[in-house]
Amino acid sequence: MDTRKHIEVCFSPYLFPLHKEEYEIVVVIDVLRATSAICAAFDNGVKAVIPVATIEEARSYQEQGYLVGAERGGQIVEGFDFGNSPYSYMNDDLKDQEVVLSTTNGTKAIDLAKDAETVVIGSLLNLDALCEWLVEQDKNILCLCSGWQNKFNLEDTICAGAITEHLINTGKFKSDEDSSIAAKYLYLSAKDNYMGYLKSSSHRRRLKNLNLNEDIKYCLTPNQSSVIPVLKDGKLVNIKNSK
């Protein structure tokens, strides 16, 4: 009997309802930039990140005195403390704080997946650490790409492909979906030069036009982090500190 668990890829939140009943773990991926920023936040001592889907929710938290990051269309929403640049979280003032984050794509995907048994944050930054942790869980896994406004994008799919390739190579997982096979081959094509491969991608061009090249370079540099952010009671916490 085949006892391997499934690792599959969902290309966009729009397709998530077709998958959600089958997987115990959902890995939410938004490489440029929400999930990368979340990893950076924990690396820099943030206690918890509260992801919210709407600007209205973000304003409500702000009125309660929270530090709040809000981004739409790649830019900081006027009136908020910061956006979703990883560099915004490299700030000693945020250490041991609970901060709130609302973004165009990533936090909406987290909200969509919140009823899963486990929701974990994935990026290229924490790729190896995340893969090792996922193998230990021995459960069925869905990589949910945040995409761009419910559309397919390259960088999230490549990251999902990297996770898929790693887990399948352990011999403990299998993939049946064409989306997972496609993601894996995109990753294999891109892995030696993410920056070059993604040069013409829509979101990289979008951020470049906003003069956010340093963010792009940071987010596309793998394995700078070993944090495992998981959703617990509506807050993302680093699993290493939550046991």
Rank of each mutant, 00 (worst) to 15 (best):
E8A: 02
P13W: 03
F16G: 04
P17D: 10
P17Y: 05
L18R: 10
E22R: 11
Y23N: 05
I25P: 06
D30A: 03
S36K: 00
A40K: 14
V46C: 15
A48Q: 15
I50A: 11
I50M: 06
P51L: 14
A53Q: 14
E56Q: 12
A58F: 09
R59V: 06
Q62N: 04
E63T: 03
G65Q: 11
G65K: 11
G73N: 15
G74H: 06
I76K: 13
V77R: 03
F82G: 02
F82I: 05
P86Q: 11
S88I: 08
D93G: 08
E98L: 02
V99F: 09
S102D: 10
T104D: 10
K108W: 12
A109P: 10
I110V: 15
A113S: 13
T118Q: 10
G122I: 03
E136S: 12
C143P: 00
L144M: 02
C145Q: 04
W148A: 08
W148V: 05
Q149R: 15
Q149C: 00
N150H: 07
H166I: 02
S175T: 13
S179N: 15
K184E: 07
L186S: 08
L188C: 06
A190H: 09
A190K: 11
K191C: 08
K191P: 01
R204W: 10
N213H: 00
E214K: 15
C219Q: 06
P222I: 07
N223Q: 04
Q224I: 06
S226W: 00
V227C: 10
P229F: 03
P229Y: 03
K235W: 05
V237P: 10
N238F: 10
S242T: 10
